[in-house]
Design a protein around this nucleic acid. Structure first.
Lengths: 251, 251
DNA sequence: GGGCTCCCTGTCAGAACTGACAGCTAGTTG
DNA sequence: CAACTAGCTGTCAGTTCTGACAGGGAGCCC
C-alpha cells in the first residue's frame, strides 16, 4: 500500500472542518476513478417507535450525490431499507453492489430503492462498513458508473485502499468533528452507577447487588433510579439497553 | 495494495481448517518481516462474576508465541489487563506498541505485563483491532523485535496491508471455523420473541407491548418467559443484555 | 461558610414482573 | 393421524421494581 494510500492517510491528520473532510473525500474518490461518494457515520441505537436500528442522532454525512436524490432518500426514509445500509450493518467486509443486476434475497422495497437509484445516476458501487466499539458505525459508498468490466477493474485495483481509507477517515471524522461529540456527550454515569448498571445487565436483582457491594438494597435502587433519570428512561431494562447503545456500558 | 495483499486475501478463500489458517498467518507474517504473531477472535460479553468485558466463550486463537508465555498469560488472566487488548477494545485503528518505552497513562499492572513480555521475547509490535456487528471482536498482534528504526520501517511499509489482512482474516475465520458457531449457535428466537424482546429493550412494559401488537398482556409475558428460558436467565433485563451480546438483538 | 457532587439509608404504596397452574388454534411433517 | 412447532389466552401468589416521601456524611471549590 505504497504511494497513494499512505499519502492520503497522512493528510487526514491535517483536516479540521467538515468542508476539509468533504473535499478530501472528493479528491480521493476522483483520484481512484470513482464518480461519486457518500459517507455517513455516527452512533447506532434502537428507534423508540419502530424498534429498528438507526443512528442515535443525525449522523455526520458527506456526499456528492445529487441533491434531489438525497432529499428524496431522506424523505422516504430509505436509509433503513437500503440494501447497502442493511448489508453494512451486518457485515465486516466491504463489498460491491449493482443496482441493475439486483441481489439475491432482495426485498421488494429494496428493489424499488435500487430502481430509483439508477434514475438518480447511481448504477453500481463499492461500500465499506465501518464498525467500532460501542455501536460506533460508519458507511462509505463510492459509485462508479462505468461499464461493468471497467468497474470491476477499478474495484479490484482499489478495494483495499478504499477499505483502509474509509476506516481511517471515519475514525478521524468521529474524533475531530464536534457534531459527533455533540449534545449527548455530556451525559455521564458515576462510578457507582456504572458498576450497578453492569450488575443489573447480568440479571442481578437489587437485593443481590446490595449483597455483592455490601450496601443497602435501598441504595442500589437509589443509584438505579439516578441512572434511569440521567438516561431519560423508565425501566432498568431500557436503561441497560440504552447505556449499551450509548457506549456507557460494554457487554 | 497490489502484489502481496490481493494474493493473500484471495488465498484466504481456500483455507478450511484451523491449521490452514494458522499456517497462512505464519507465512504472511514472515513474508512481511515480522517475528511472531498472535490472533484471537470471538464474541464479546460481560463476565458474570467480574462484570468486565471478556469473550463469551474461549475465542479462536492462533499464535507463534512461546508456549510458556501463553500459559503464563492465560494463568494470570493477563488478557483483561494487557495494554494491547484494552486498547483494541476501545479503538478502531491499528497502532504499534513498545514494551520498553512504555505508554502514557499505563497502569502498574499493564507495566508489569509488558516487562514480563520482554522476557518472553516480545519487545514491540503492531496490533489491529477488529470490530464487527453484535460484539464480534478480533485482535491481531504481530511482533517485530528488530531495532526501533528497522521496526518503524517495516510498520510504515506494511501497516495497511496488515490492517486489511487482519479484517479479512478475522471474517474468514469466524465464518469458516466451526468453533465460532459452536454450541451457542443453535439458540434461536422466534419472530415473535425477537419482536417482543426489541420492544422490551426500549423500555416498553408488557401491557404497552400488548397494545402495540394487539395481543393479550399474558401472551407478551408468555413470549418473554420463553425467551428467558432459552437464554437461561431470570430477568428480562438480563435477557435483553444477553441477546444483544449474542447478536440476536441489535440496538 | 455555602454550594456542589457523590455516596449512603429509611418507609411505603402501587405497578410490573415471574413462574406456576391451566387449555386453545393453525400449520407442518413423518 | 400423531407429534411437533409457533402463537395465543386465562388466573393467581409471590417477588421485584418504581417513584414518592424523607434524611445522613465526606470531599471539593470559590
Amino acid at each position: 500500500m505504497d504511494g497513494i494510500l499512505s499519502h492520503l492517510v497522512e493528510r487526514l491528520d491535517q483536516l479540521r472542518t467538515q468542508d476539509d473532510f468533504e473535499a478530501f473525500l472528493r479528491n480521493a474518490a476522483e483520484e481512484m476513478g470513482f464518480d461519486m461518494f457518500a459517507y455517513a457515520g455516527g452512533r447506532l441505537a434502537e428507534d423508540r417507535v419502530t424498534a429498528r436500528t438507526v443512528f442515535q442522532r443525525p449522523p455526520i454525512t458527506m456526499s456528492s450525490f445529487p441533491d434531489d436524490w438525497l432529499t428524496h432518500y431522506a424523505n422516504e426514509g430509505y436509509f433503513k431499507d437500503d440494501y447497502v445500509v442493511v448489508q453494512s450493518l451486518r457485515a465486516i467486509l466491504p463489498d460491491q453492489w449493482h443496482a441493475e443486476r439486483g441481489v439475491r434475497e432482495i426485498r421488494p422495497r429494496q428493489a424499488q430503492i435500487m430502481r430509483e437509484a439508477i434514475d438518480a445516476g447511481l448504477r453500481r458501487g463499492f461500500f465499506v462498513p465501518i464498525h467500532g466499539p460501542a455501536n460506533d458505525f460508519g458507511l462509505l459508498n463510492v459509485i462508479c458508473n462505468e461499464a461493468e468490466g471497467e468497474f470491476s477493474k477499478i474495484v479490484e485495483r482499489y478495494r483495499h485502499e478504499v477499505h483502509v481509507l474509509a476506516v481511517h477517515f471515519h475514525d478521524a471524522v468521529q474524533k475531530r468533528l464536534p457534531a459527533s461529540a455533540g449534545r449527548g456527550a455530556r451525559l455521564q454515569l458515576t462510578e457507582r452507577e456504572s458498576e450497578i448498571l453492569r450488575w443489573t445487565a447480568v440479571g442481578k436483582t437489587s437485593w443481590e447487588i446490595s449483597e455483592i457491594l455490601h450496601i443497602a438494597e435501598r441504595t442500589v435502587n437509589f443509584h438505579v433510579a439516578n441512572t434511569m433519570r440521567k438516561l431519560g428512561v423508565y425501566s432498568r431494562t431500557h436503561a441497560v439497553a440504552k447505556s449499551i447503545s450509548l457506549g456507557l456500558t460494554r457487554l
